[in-house]
């Protein structure tokens, strides 16, 4: 499994652990489901930073980066790749 898919799986299981009734697809807007609100977005930030050992910079702390499992995995991938300086 690629790191990207692993990240998706981890994020998905974190969401499903909190919302057992949910069946969420990776491209689905979780905030449109009706039971996930911005308080949970805060928990997602904490979870992602802890699990993937990274700090999300302030300009990335936008709700759009947390709408879908894919967007979150993208964010993790962006933050994990060392920035090339040239």
């Amino acid at each position: 499994m690629s790191e990207y898919t692993t990240a998706q799986t981890q994020i998905l299981s974190f969401i499903e652990a909190r919302f057992p009734q949910a069946s969420i697809e990776t491209g689905q807007d979780i905030f449109s489901l009706g039971y996930i609100n911005s308080l949970f977005a805060m928990e997602l930030v904490m979870f992602i930073e802890k699990t993937f050992g990274l700090t999300i910079p302030n300009d990335e702390l936008r709700i759009d980066n947390f709408r879908t499992v894919e967007a979150m995995a993208d964010l993790v991938a962006r933050r994990s790749v060392p920035v090339s300086v040239d």
Partner: peptide, 11 residues
Amino acid sequence: CRLSRLMGGPA
């Protein structure tokens, strides 16, 4: 404060 914008508040 860091998460303010995420929660719908100002930066």
